[in-house]
Design a protein around this nucleic acid. Structure first.
Length: 469
RNA sequence: GGUCCGGUGGCAGAAUGGUGAUGCAGCGGACUGCAAAUCCGCGUAUGUGGGUUCGAUUCCCGCCCGGACCUCCA
């Protein structure tokens, strides 16, 4: 072996929306990578489209944590918004109760999916003072103005407005479909602060009692927790304009010495049965709707089965297929004796619990999760053929994507009541006796009985095992 | 109307200027008392018309179709 090159990890490349290109990721500080994602507006249950963005962030952050010693991931909760006010009114519910309840549901749903919590999860209502400071500063340096109780950002004051989303402000004006509010100096100007009626949530300010506009909260929170410049800002592609464009304008004008986000990561939308998910079509699926049909990992696998930048078509058939795929993966672990939960690496050199190179290479290539999953299939095949090292690699690679987090026992047989458990064992013994007596009619009758209970039997050389159908 | 993205086998979904992954489904076989699981084998695809090229699915142009954003939205 004359040229044994030392193994070097693949370098991460990411598609940056602003550069409109896939480029090497170079952190501002390799010792500490900083990521900000736009979180939910908490007025209703999260849907699977929301989930896609959260999963993209989750895989990205898991990968970054693997590659870098320290990662700070900030994801906000938007708990002041006119949609929240409207929903609270419709529900005849207190705003704080609505946002607390919805935030709790959001946390439960993401936890079910194995989405790791952010390091910091700031709430908009806890950062009003920071927003007001930014607004005052923007007024002071000529990027914002007061008009009829509103404070507006002056798009014309920021030369590179539109650079992120690739829009030309003049064209925006020409194509404006919404009637321009009379107090705006220019049609593209957007609200930083707006006045509140007595029955709307509001905070006192030097511009009167009011509430923040649509975009300032993320600028304030990202700055508070990550500073003038941070590495990655992400969200759904529908946020690119105007939300992220406006965030960028506010932040760069407020903190001209900084760079704000250095990379922008945007995930594509998803379709349900080939159609845009919308309430009017009746195909608006919450995370809970999906979880009623399949285990959470199946949903995760399905959503990671397409590259994050391409449109994903969600179907129930796809969800069930993802579940069968996980059956195979867990079977591969079980066959190799990886029945425990321990994440620690086995000491044996031929069974390293390391991220398989193919998986790491795929994920490092702009989060190519479908290709990484194909690698898992290859490892599962090897594991099923008895390769224990492949089973460890399968589990390690899958876990980097938040998959195979449980044990085969739990996956196949979890959630079955104790009494059923005993009955199943009894019936299996009964069937075994019948088979020994070559009374196959009786044996098959027992199997049918179990089938009716949702239990599938698998005969092996070592005996009969069972699992939920 | 403006801006942008995409169209790969029955389905999902990668990749690529030079014989198009992977999974599911289908078909045939092995194993099994029969199944289940597993294994082996097989078939099927780059929307359309041009251009560049020795060679295009990949690059360029037209067309058709779909989607996103421009308005709250992951």
């Amino acid at each position: 072996m004359p040229h044994e090159l030392p193994p070097s990890p693949p370098s991460l490349v990411l598609h940056d929306s602003q550069r409109r290109a896939t480029v090497p990721f170079e952190p501002l500080d390799p010792a500490h990578v900083k990521v900000y994602y736009c979180g939910p507006t908490v007025y209703d249950l999260a849907h699977i489209g929301n989930l896609r963005a959260m999963l993209t962030a989750d895989v990205l952050v898991r990968l970054l944590r693997h590659l870098y010693p320290r990662v700070t991931f900030v994801r906000n909760i938007t708990d002041v918004d006119d949609k929240i006010t409207a929903r609270a009114r419709a529900n005849n519910e207190d705003i704080a109760a609505l946002t607390a309840r919805t935030t709790d549901e959001f946390h439960q749903d993401l936890a079910a999916l194995g989405v790791l919590p952010p390091d910091i999860e700031p709430r908009a209502t806890h950062n009003i003072a920071q927003m007001q400071e930014m607004i005052a500063r923007l007024i002071a340096n000529g990027h914002a103005y007061e008009a009829q109780g509103h404070v507006l950002f002056s798009v014309g004051s920021f030369a590179s407005y539109g650079a992120l989303s690739g829009r030309n402000p003049d064209e925006l004006e020409a194509g404006a479909r919404v009637e321009v509010a009379p107090y705006k100096q220019a049609p593209g100007d957007f609200v930083l602060w707006k006045p509140s009626d007595a029955d709307q949530p509001g905070w006192d300010s030097s511009w009167g009692r009011g509430r923040p506009g649509w975009h300032i909260e993320c600028s304030a929170m990202s700055h508070r927790y990550l500073g003038d410049s941070f590495d990655i800002h992400g969200g759904g592609s529908d946020l690119l304009f105007p939300h992220h464009e406006n965030e960028r304008a506010q932040s760069l004008c407020c903190f001209p010495g900084g760079r704000f986000a250095n990379y922008w990561v945007h995930n594509a939308m998803l379709l349900v049965d080939g159609e845009k998910m919308s309430k009017s079509l009746g195909n608006f699926l919450t995370i809970r709707d999906a979880l009623a049909q399949a285990p959470a990992e199946a949903l995760r696998l399905l959503l990671l089965g397409a590259h994050y930048r391409s449109t994903l078509n969600y179907t129930q058939a796809g969800l069930l297929e993802a579940r069968r795929t996980l059956d195979r993966f867990y079977r591969a672990l079980e066959n190799c004796g990886l029945t425990g939960e321990d994440e620690t690496a086995p000491v044996s050199a031929d069974a390293p619990d390391q991220i398989p190179p193919g998986v790491l290479a795929a994920l490092s290539d702009d989060l190519n999760t479908p290709l990484a999953i194909a690698e898992l299939h290859a490892l599962a095949g090897q594991a099923l053929a008895g390769d224990k090292a492949a089973a460890y690699a399968l589990r390690a690679g899958a876990r980097l994507m938040g998959l195979l987090q449980t044990t085969p026992e739990e996956w196949f047989r979890g959630g079955v009541p104790q009494d059923d458990d005993k009955l199943i064992e009894t019936l299996i013994a009964e069937r075994l006796a019948a088979r020994k007596a070559r009374d196959f009619a009786r044996a098959d009758a027992v199997r049918d009985q179990l089938q009716a209970m949702g239990i599938v039997l698998e005969d092996t050389r070592d005996g009969t095992s069972w699992r939920r159908a």
